[in-house]
Simulated assay, not measured.
Amino acid sequence: MARPNLQLIEALRRTAHKLATGASYQWGHMGSCNCGNLAQELTQLTKAEIHQRALAVGRGDWHEQLNDYCPTSGLPMDLLIADMLAAGLSSEDLQQLERLSNRRILERLPLEKRYLRHNVRDDVVLYLGTWADWLEEQLLEKITLPRWEKTPVENSVSERDSVIA
């Protein structure tokens, strides 16, 4: 499960916005697919650099890359995945992003929108936006602001202002 944080939420929203406004999208391209577009935002690598790293390993799609991920290998693709995990994602999150299959995200969609297709740009945009909203809600639930008691001076000013009004 993704760890809610501002960096990740902003990256999800930037990715959704870029896709909605015409960024390169090609599901079969490791740098332009669902995970590839998010990887661009989290790592600042280009789609070509991401694709090149994936092909150098030769393990297949993102699902297979994540299954074979080794944090100590030093391989460029594993370093990229490590950066994405450090941003608050899990391997499962990325595998689900590739197929738009996280049940908890899908349940947040209206019934008629819950059957997303993993290689359709508009469905990816909807999934990413819904995911960002959900993570933001989780993050806000954890935030508590300090409550300050009014001092006698503040109380007397408030009372005076209410009399004047």
Rank of each mutant, 00 (worst) to 15 (best):
V57P: 06
L79A: 02
G60Q: 07
R104C: 13
E98A: 04
P146V: 04
P71L: 11
V120R: 15
A86T: 06
D93Q: 05
G22V: 02
K47L: 01
Q52M: 09
K113M: 07
V124I: 08
H51Y: 09
D61C: 06
R3T: 02
D61K: 07
R53A: 11
A56L: 04
E141T: 05
G36M: 04
W134E: 13
P4W: 07
V157L: 14
L128Q: 05
L126I: 03
Y69C: 02
E64F: 02
I105K: 12
N5V: 02
G31E: 07
A20N: 06
C33W: 00
T72I: 04
P76H: 08
L79Y: 02
T46L: 10
R108M: 09
N155P: 01
G36T: 04
H29D: 10
D68R: 15
R114L: 01
R121D: 04
G129T: 03
L139F: 11
R108D: 05
S156D: 13
A132Y: 00
W131M: 04
R147E: 12
W62C: 14
D68P: 06
S91H: 07
Q95R: 08
L80E: 08
E64Q: 10
D122E: 15
R104I: 04
G22F: 01
M1D: 08
K47D: 06
A20K: 10
Q40N: 13
I143F: 14
H29F: 06
V157H: 11
L6N: 12
G74I: 06
Q95T: 01
L75Y: 11
